[in-house]
Computed example of a mutant assay.
Amino acid sequence: MPEATINTGIYKLFPSPRNRHREVFQHEVFVPHPYALVDPPSYGPQGRWSLFAAHRLADGKNGQLVTFELERDAATFQARFVPD
């Protein structure tokens, strides 16, 4: 059974059950809206991605962390994402 949480030293992460890949990719976007609908496939990423519920350890802020394999996918997501 996989780990229920991942601790990166910066975030405590809880993987989304929708993830095809349970890894934290290099390019990260923290969304400080824990209940916002975040649907990475709707942004048309070219590479792999993962979504996590996240607790930022430095300030205790809860939100979501979207990680992308490709930098351009992270940039596209960050530019287009608007919380609902």
Score class of each variant (00 low, 15 high):
1 M>N: 03
2 P>Y: 15
2 P>F: 13
4 A>M: 06
6 I>H: 12
6 I>Q: 08
6 I>D: 00
8 T>P: 06
8 T>H: 13
8 T>R: 08
13 L>D: 07
13 L>Y: 09
17 P>D: 11
18 R>G: 01
19 N>L: 01
19 N>C: 03
19 N>M: 06
21 H>W: 14
21 H>C: 05
23 E>L: 09
23 E>H: 06
24 V>F: 03
25 F>S: 04
25 F>I: 13
26 Q>G: 03
27 H>R: 01
29 V>P: 00
29 V>D: 10
32 P>Y: 07
33 H>D: 12
33 H>I: 04
35 Y>E: 15
35 Y>R: 13
38 V>R: 01
39 D>S: 10
40 P>S: 06
41 P>F: 11
42 S>V: 13
42 S>G: 03
45 P>W: 01
47 G>F: 09
48 R>F: 07
48 R>T: 04
49 W>M: 08
49 W>K: 05
50 S>L: 02
51 L>R: 10
51 L>A: 04
51 L>H: 03
52 F>K: 02
54 A>E: 07
55 H>Q: 12
56 R>M: 10
56 R>V: 03
57 L>F: 02
58 A>N: 11
59 D>A: 09
61 K>W: 03
62 N>T: 09
64 Q>E: 02
65 L>G: 10
65 L>A: 04
66 V>E: 09
66 V>C: 05
66 V>L: 15
67 T>V: 08
69 E>P: 08
69 E>F: 12
73 D>R: 00
74 A>I: 02
75 A>C: 04
75 A>V: 14
76 T>K: 15
76 T>W: 00
77 F>G: 11
77 F>C: 11
77 F>P: 04
78 Q>D: 15
78 Q>N: 15
78 Q>F: 06
80 R>D: 12
81 F>N: 05
81 F>K: 08
82 V>G: 00
84 D>R: 03
